[in-house]
Simulated scan of single mutants.
Amino acid sequence: MSNTMVIKQPEPVMVLQDSDQWGSRICDCCQDVPECFAFWCCPCFACKITDSYGEGLCLPLLDIFGMVPPITFAMRVSMRHRYGISQGSICGDCIYASFCTSCSWCQMSREMKRRKIQVKLVSTKRT
């Protein structure tokens, strides 16, 4: 008979209740000049923001294949959930993702900077 010990590390949980509102409006793109990059190359900007958020680097490239950009939509919903932003709705997120894609990415970037939370999930595996 062998003794097996299983140890599971606690997973990080981050709850931040800074504000239940977006830090800026959807059309406040000129507040931060580097955000204007989103209008010249939105896919590159979206990939950079998604990577900084802790998700897959090239995930926003999937937005090219649909009428409603699924990744932009999912990122807005995830960001509202993570930061506790009660302002807005899934319907509103869908509309912003569909018709104001560049502005949505700019707003999400400004929100990440305002909250000053850089999330990187790192997994290590011993070989």
Rank of each mutant, 00 (worst) to 15 (best):
S2L: 09
L61W: 00
L121F: 13
Q17A: 14
C94W: 12
T50F: 00
G23I: 06
C100S: 06
P69W: 02
R76A: 07
G54K: 05
C58V: 15
D20W: 04
S52Q: 14
W22I: 13
P10G: 04
D63S: 00
K48W: 11
V77Y: 00
M1Q: 08
R115S: 09
C100F: 04
Q21Y: 09
C41A: 11
C44E: 10
P34H: 01
V15T: 14
D51T: 11
D63Q: 02
G56H: 01
M5G: 07
I85S: 05
V119K: 13
I95N: 12
V122L: 03
C44H: 07
S52R: 15
S98T: 15
G84L: 01
I90S: 11
M108F: 03
G88Y: 01
Q31T: 13
C42H: 09
D18W: 06
I90A: 08
D51S: 12
G66A: 08
Q31F: 04
C47K: 11
S52V: 13
K120G: 10
Q107F: 11
S98R: 14
R80M: 05
C27M: 15
W105D: 04
D28F: 05
S78T: 11
C36T: 12
V6S: 09
D63K: 00
M1F: 09
C100H: 11
A38N: 03
G56M: 08
I64N: 05
K116Y: 10
W105P: 06
I95W: 05
